[in-house]
Design a protein around this nucleic acid. Structure first.
Lengths: 335, 335
DNA sequence: CTGTTAGCGCTTTCAA
DNA sequence: TTGAAAGCGCTAACAG
């Protein structure tokens, strides 16, 4: 492989000049520049990133810490991050944690080792104290899920508002026996959606029996949604609507209803959350909240970039707008 | 950040010695070693990967070229690659091409720039000639899809055999009017599955009218599967079984059948391929071929590792075994 | 506008 | 078993 000094020799200039045209910022005479370009072409020269990064003390890599790429919701965010990173000259290193805190720390070590210049946390299972060690000396932003106490920049939708919208829609449709399927994880979105459900119900003078709050697995698995729904649908006071905090949970709920001979939406209204791919794969298509996944990722990357460039960040809390999509799994209450 | 020479000073040894204990290969006296460890701890030293990689002229990063992480099939393979890479001391850089050849070349440039030491091609849209430029001087392996002419190592299942198994099962179940939904892409798996379908039909003396071979989009989209199925199901000689070369296509087919009032599996048998997540999200659960995605990824990474270490590779063509899973979308033919 | 030169932090001969 | 010292290829003062 040709090096910068080979090029310099070939073009009869100094290495400094070659470096200048490579980074085309300082002034180089047009003619000289051309000579250098010719030499580069002739020798088929490619700058050695290893050397450059070392010298500049940067990796031009950003780290994405995610629980699970297999989840299409994250996969879409990842795509947004990835393409934006690429357009800014960065490569994206994806680190799967499977939700384990240990793995998460292992990932963050990449920052210290200088394998990556900054990180985007997709659904940190860490509590702030654990983060602190890395966050003090490295740019980090949170995307989608976040820890409010960490003080880190973040981008997400307004989960509380979105959930409120769904529950109000349910109430406006005449439903009163509204149950929810939440999840056993500690994500802020989970908490906010559940809180909004409770508040909205209360604001409208509607009761929420303890038994109306069911929980799926931390990863919103289809099976756990089905199981939770089975329980809900076996209640004496069977709910006429179920507000699920994820689409897979809603899918599970619909499946449970079908097996129990309960028609959706005629006898049971079901709503989801996120609007991932399989939301319109089967009838009934699911009424849900569409999240701007790609944009979430894009904005997070831009925020991180600003951070890395040490630009002032105007907005530390970016809230993107969601969209409530009414489809086939919901209908007005019919006594 | 402390450097190796800070540590050397602190431990009253030379940098060479510190380097030796860091890479613990050359012999260092126990006592000295301990002094170095103490110094490292005291100074909270972390070796600078940027410097190390530069010096060693390696990145310890591997590149994954994939059309689309959003596809759960690839996402699972990615997980296998990622975890294996991690355990071997490598980080995985994921490069999404969206199926574009240009993007693909852009990704492969990372190899030349030394951003990555090797690459795994998940579904190369490149034809061998384009690959050549990179393959000559860098370790590359193909996973799942491959170009047989490239001569590159590869790991995959035996698509021909698997497809044959499915079609034979259909025939053994009494079906004769068996159609297929293939795809408009140029993947080898597509070709092999279609070929196997044709051959098997022929071997059993069954006719395949031209109209029995339908095509979905290159990315196997649900919608395109539905559309293709609609056409197939409107034929005068309506097929009693449809062999789909992917699960989403099968899902689309079932959806089409439902809308047309055709019962699956009573009046129509549908089979899929790959066994991705949503294969058991709805009834009827899909009869399909399960691919060992995680293992596919793992083996590919191991192969690449061997290549990078310049070990002899015993097997250039690794075939992993699949599993035919009979579920609810298929049934014996009833006249 | 261009050249000279000093490192960046690490690994690796070579010599002791 | 250890140390001295030479670089890896590039960037960025600094000098001209």
């Amino acid at each position: 492989m040709a090096t910068i000094s080979d090029v310099a020799k070939e073009a009869r200039v100094s290495v400094a000049t070659v470096s200048r045209v490579l980074n085309n910022k300082e002034s180089v005479r047009k003619e000289t520049q051309q000579r250098v370009y010719d030499a580069i072409e002739k020798l088929n020269f490619q700058p050695n990133l290893l050397a450059r990064n070392f010298r500049r003390s940067e990796s031009r890599v950003i780290l994405i810490i995610t629980p699970n790429i297999t989840n299409p919701y994250y996969a879409h965010i990842l795509t947004g991050i990835g393409e934006t990173a690429s357009s800014l000259g960065y490569s994206a290193l994806i680190f799967n944690t499977g939700g384990s805190l240990e793995k998460e720390k292992e990932g963050m070590e990449m920052l210290k080792l200088r394998r990556a210049d900054g990180a985007i946390l997709l659904a940190s299972s860490m509590e702030s104290p654990h983060l602190l060690e890395y966050v003090e000396s490295h740019p980090v932003v949170q995307c989608s899920e976040y820890d409010g106490a960490s003080g880190l920049p973040r981008v997400s939708i307004d989960n509380h508002l979105a959930a409120k919208e769904v529950v109000e829609y349910l109430i406006d449709s005449g439903h009163e026996k509204i149950a929810t399927i939440s999840s056993k994880n500690t994500y802020i979105s989970t908490k906010e959606r559940l809180d909004a459900y409770r508040e909205t119900m209360k604001d409208h003078g509607l009761k929420v029996p303890r038994s109306y709050i069911a929980h799926g697995d931390p990863d919103y698995s289809f099976k756990s949604g089905k199981k939770a729904a089975m329980k809900l649908l076996s209640l004496k006071e069977r709910p006429t609507a179920i507000f699920c905090i994820s689409d897979t949970l809603a899918l599970g709920t619909i499946s449970a209803a079908m097996e129990m001979g309960i028609k959706v939406p005629e006898e049971l209204t079901v709503t989801g959350f996120d609007d991932v791919d399989d939301t319109t794969m089967f009838h009934p298509y699911i009424t849900t909240v569409k999240q701007p996944c790609y944009d979430l990722g894009m904005r997070a990357m831009k925020l991180l970039f600003d951070r890395m460039m040490k630009k002032e960040i105007s907005d530390k809390k970016v809230i993107l707008s969601h969209q409530f999509v009414i489809r086939e799994s919901s209908a007005p209450y019919k006594p």
